[in-house]
C-alpha cells in the first residue's frame, strides 16, 4: 500500500474530524448515521464481500451490541466501557456461532444467518425480565454521551472498519479469504486453513456492528427488538457494498454515501418509494453492474490482468 493509495482516506478522515466545527446538529446526525452505515457495510464486506458467504442476518450482532450497551449503561457502567463490552459480547456470541454456521455452504449459511437474526429478535422480545420485551428500553438522558461524543466514537468505528478491510485485503488473510470465495475446495487443497480463516473473518466482522449497536442505542436513547434486529438495516449494508464494489476498500464507502444521500432526499416524504427504489437498485446492480461502481473507474481497467484484451 503506497501513500498515494491511502491519501484520499486521510483527507476524508480529517474532513470528518473537522466537520462538527461547521455542521449543525441535524447535519451532524446525518453524518453520524452515514458513519454508522460505513462501519456496518465494511463489516459485512469483511465476511460476505471477501469470502462470498452471504450473511443475511448481520444485524444480529448489531442488536446484541445495542442491548448489551443499553443494559450496561443502565447498570451504571460509563458509556465508553459499555461500548467496549457491547463489542466484546458481540464477539463472544459470534465466535461459537461462526464455528457452527460456517460449516454450512452457500444458501444454507445465508438462511441460517437470517434465522439467527430472527432468534435474536425473539429472545429480545420474549426475555421480558432482562429486555423489557417489546416495550423496549428507554435510556435516561443523564447518563448518555453527548452527540459530539457519539459522533467521534462512530467516526473511530468507521475508520477502524475501513482500515481493517484495507489491512486484510493486502495481507495473506485477505488473499486466502478471496481464494475461498473463488473456489473453496481448491483453496483447501493448496493448504489454506479455510475453517480458521472464515471464523476469524466472521468474528472480526461481528465486533464493529456490536460496538456500533451500542452507539446507536446511545444516540437514539431508545431501543426495541424491531428497531435493532432490523432486516431493513441488513438490506442497506448489502446494497452499499454491492453498489460500491464488494471486497474492495473504498466501494462500501462510496456506496454508503450514495445510499444515505438518496435516503435523505426521499425517506421523509416517501418511505415506501424509497425502499422500492433500493430494490430496483439491487436488481439493476446484479444484472448490469455485478462488480460495483468501482469497476467502472478507468484506472482499474489497466491494472487488472483479467480484463486484458484477449482474455476470456
Amino acid at each position: 500500500m503506497s501513500l498515494k493509495s491511502i491519501a484520499p482516506g486521510i483527507v476524508l478522515a480529517l474532513l470528518a474530524v473537522a466537520a462538527p466545527a461547521m455542521a449543525s446538529d441535524y447535519q451532524l446526525l446525518f453524518l453520524l448515521q452515514l458513519l454508522m452505515m460505513i462501519a456496518l457495510a465494511q463489516s459485512w464486506n469483511l465476511i460476505s464481500g471477501m469470502t462470498g458467504y452471504v450473511s443475511l442476518g448481520h444485524t444480529a450482532f448489531f442488536g446484541v451490541g445495542a442491548y448489551a450497551g443499553a443494559l450496561l449503561l443502565q447498570w451504571g457502567f460509563p458509556w465508553w466501557l459499555a461500548i467496549f463490552k457491547g463489542a466484546g459480547i458481540a464477539l463472544l456470541v459470534a465466535a461459537p456461532l461462526g464455528v457452527l454456521t460456517l460449516r454450512l455452504r452457500g444458501p444454507y449459511f445465508a438462511i441460517a444467518m437470517l434465522g439467527l437474526n430472527e432468534i435474536g429478535r425473539l429472545v429480545a422480545t420474549l426475555w421480558v425480565d432482562l429486555t423489557q420485551g417489546g416495550d423496549g428500553i428507554p435510556l435516561s438522558p443523564a447518563r448518555l454521551p453527548t452527540l459530539l461524543q457519539n459522533y467521534y466514537t462512530m467516526l473511530t468505528l468507521a475508520v477502524l472498519a475501513t482500515s481493517l478491510i484495507a489491512w486484510v485485503r493486502y495481507n495473506r488473510l485477505g488473499l486466502e479469504l478471496r481464494a475461498i470465495r473463488e473456489d473453496e475446495e481448491a483453496a483447501e487443497m493448496v493448504g489454506v486453513n479455510t475453517t480458521r480463516n472464515k471464523v476469524i473473518a466472521f468474528a472480526l466482522s461481528a465486533v464493529i456492528p456490536g460496538a456500533a449497536g451500542a452507539v446507536y442505542a446511545f444516540y437514539t436513547s431508545y431501543i426495541d427488538p424491531v428497531s435493532v434486529f432490523a432486516p431493513a438495516l441488513n438490506i442497506q449494508m448489502i446494497v452499499m457494498v454491492l453498489l460500491g464494489g464488494s471486497g474492495t476498500v473504498w466501494g462500501p464507502v462510496i456506496g454508503a454515501v450514495l445510499v444515505r444521500t438518496l435516503h435523505e432526499l426521499t425517506w421523509a416524504q416517501f418511505p415506501a418509494l424509497h425502499l422500492a427504489l433500493l430494490g430496483v437498485l439491487i436488481v439493476a446492480i446484479v444484472l448490469f453492474l455485478p462488480k460495483g461502481i468501482l469497476s467502472l473507474a478507468p484506472w482499474r481497467r489497466r491494472v487488472r490482468p483479467d480484463r486484458a484484451p484477449g482474455s476470456p
Partner: peptide, 11 residues
Amino acid sequence: LLLTYGLSIIL
C-alpha cells in the same frame, strides 16, 4: 439471492 431479495423489496 440478491436479485430475488431486490425483487421482494420492490414487491
